[in-house]
């Protein structure tokens, strides 16, 4: 029940990317800052990471889903609402409550978290290019849902002492939605989304079990 063709989907990305340029550069800078901060944790750094994630989700909900995706997809308003809810959850969990630390540990959760973050910023776009999805038709880090969701998985896995469950629910839902769309729209790079979701859930369960 996907109401548009791959041709239209990538034409939409082209229009979106050109309209929001140079937000993609800003997103990459913020992503690199987050990546650096997990190696040098601090109270303000934690809040900054939480704020960046919330801003990514809010931006994707409003700019991508509501303003650009809605004209071609009747489900986009629902996606926009889910993304804004996720932004609020992240804000509440990491800014208002603020009782978790994002920290890289030399363990499976740490390795998985950083790998997913780097995957979202580097490998995902390269996979996209290998599939013929080049700028400006590419789903760019931070401003397009798929790489942003993989990045979120990575960051959440670094939460210490436990990975919070509530903030990961909507990303997992999106991974499943996007994974099915990847099949119908022939977007091989998006197959990585459900895989990242599986990794995130598996590592979350393992890490939280050990923490308790």
């Amino acid at each position: 029940m996907i109401p548009f063709s791959p041709e239209v989907f990538f034409a939409l990305f082209e229009e979106y990317n050109l309209a929001i340029w140079p937000a993609q550069i800003v997103a990459y800078v913020l992503g690199l800052l987050v990546l650096g901060l997990v190696f040098r944790p601090s109270v303000s750094g934690n809040r900054f990471i939480g704020a960046i994630l919330a801003i990514f989700w809010l931006g994707n909900g409003i700019a991508y889903h509501w303003l650009y995706f809605m004209p071609i997809n009747f489900a986009a308003p629902l996606f926009a609402v889910l993304f804004v809810i996720e932004a609020l959850i992240l804000w509440w969990r990491f800014i208002i409550r603020g009782d978790l630390t994002f920290r890289f540990h030399r363990d499976i959760a740490g390795a998985a978290g950083v790998t997913l973050m780097i995957f979202a910023m580097v490998i995902y776009p390269l996979l996209g290019m290998a599939s013929g999805h080049n700028w400006p038709q590419a789903a760019m880090f931070g401003v397009a849902p798929s790489p942003m969701v993989i990045f979120t998985f990575g960051v959440l896995l670094l939460a210490t002492p436990r990975v919070p469950i509530v903030p990961i629910v909507i990303p997992v839902m999106w991974a499943l939605i996007s994974g099915s769309a990847a099949w119908f729209l022939d977007i091989p790079e998006d197959v990585s989304l459900p895989l990242a979701g599986v990794v995130a859930v598996f590592v979350l369960v393992r890490k939280n079990r050990r923490a308790s």
Partner: peptide, 13 residues
């Protein structure tokens, strides 16, 4: 027109 005419704002399409 299911899918085929859902081309959004793309002038070319």
């Amino acid at each position: 027109s299911w899918i085929t005419f859902n081309v959004g704002a793309s002038q070319k399409l």
